[in-house]
């Protein structure tokens, strides 16, 4: 199967791999998984007082497409507001990486991970209501 240059680049040189302090009040953590393929993805954001994502980290155990999708998302969300980051769609990810149809679910997983991280952050700051159902 021919994978895109972008996908291979993210897979071979994943950006922002790592972890942040989950307990910290300005860090939101999203942990999601797709049991069909046994993937598990953790995505974390560090948010400044004015709602800007200053840093993002991920740790993904899964296929190349899952790693590339989460790596790309951490790159995209840095510098965005949490509301902007919440608008990232799996189709944007799939398009950027030119994911083959059987790997679209990896981009769904990455979208779900950033949404879960934002929700977790908002839960910590007591601002949970607003975008609770954004994933729907």
């Amino acid at each position: 199967m021919a994978y895109s240059k972008e996908l291979i680049d993210h897979y071979e040189n994943p950006r922002n791999v790592g972890s942040m302090e989950d307990e910290s009040g300005d860090v939101g953590t999203g942990l999601v998984g797709a049991p069909a393929c046994g993937d598990v993805m953790k995505l974390q954001i560090k948010v400044s007082a004015d709602g800007i994502i200053e840093d993002a980290k991920f740790k993904t155990f899964g296929c190349g497409s899952a790693i590339a999708s989460s790596s790309l998302v951490t790159e995209w969300v840095k510098g965005k507001t949490i509301d902007e980051a919440g608008e990232i769609k799996n189709t944007d990810i799939a398009e950027e990486l030119a994911l083959p149809p059987v790997k679209i679910h990896c981009s769904v997983l990455a979208e779900d991970a950033i949404k879960a991280a934002i929700e977790d952050y908002k839960g910590k700051t007591g601002d949970a209501d607003e975008s609770k159902d954004a994933a729907e």
């Binding site: 942990l31 999601v32 998984g33 797709a34 049991p35 069909a36 740790k59 155990f61 679910h105």
Partner: peptide, 23 residues
């Protein structure tokens, strides 16, 4: 359990266990 073949697990205990084992 698996709508459309891609089911997202929300069960944090299972995911944390999976993450820790892999790490």
């Amino acid at each position: 359990v698996l709508p459309e073949g891609c089911n997202l697990v929300k069960d944090q205990a299972i995911l944390i266990e999976a993450m820790e084992m892999r790490e």
